[in-house]
């Protein structure tokens, strides 16, 4: 089965591709990978007063992995950190109509979000 139109759209016009300063205090970075397919995904958030003001990603992987992270950054912008941590991979699967073999791509995106939030929170404590 082929990719859904939504995946193709994100793949051809990825949103929020780029990098932020990973050492900045208001930036949280998450890098995750799947050795099986060799995919690597970097997702970063910028936070102000508990709200995510900007999100960027860079993904080396298949179309579904790129679409999942692109969609994730779209969803992250404007959300509170608490509400961002509630994004589930199943939401991404539903939105992008990912077939079962591509579900792991959405898991990658969820893990990247969690890691980026955890990284930001660790920075706030220190």
């Amino acid at each position: 089965m082929g990719y859904s139109n939504k995946v193709i759209d994100h793949y051809e016009n990825p949103r929020n591709v780029g990098s932020m300063d990973k050492d900045a205090a208001d930036v949280g970075t998450g890098v995750v990978g799947a050795p099986e397919c060799g995919d690597v995904m970097k997702l970063q958030i910028q936070v102000e007063d508990g709200v995510i003001t900007d999100a960027k990603f860079k993904t080396f992987g298949c179309g579904s992995a790129i679409a999942s992270s692109s969609l994730a950054t779209e969803w992250l912008k404007g959300r509170t950190v608490t509400s961002a941590s509630e994004i589930r991979n199943t939401d991404i699967v539903e939105e992008l109509e990912l077939p079962p073999v591509k579900i792991h791509c959405s898991v990658l995106a969820e893990d990247a979000i969690k890691q980026a939030i955890a990284d930001y929170q660790t920075k706030q404590k220190s």
């Binding site: 970075t29 890098v31 995750v32 990978g33 799947a34 690597v40 080396f60 792991h104 990658l108 893990d111």
Partner: peptide
């Protein structure tokens, strides 16, 4: 299968 939980951020950055 799926996310590599054991990989360090440093290693994944290097791969990136």
């Amino acid at each position: 299968t799926g996310t590599d939980k054991s990989a360090s951020q440093g290693f994944l950055m290097e791969m990136m």
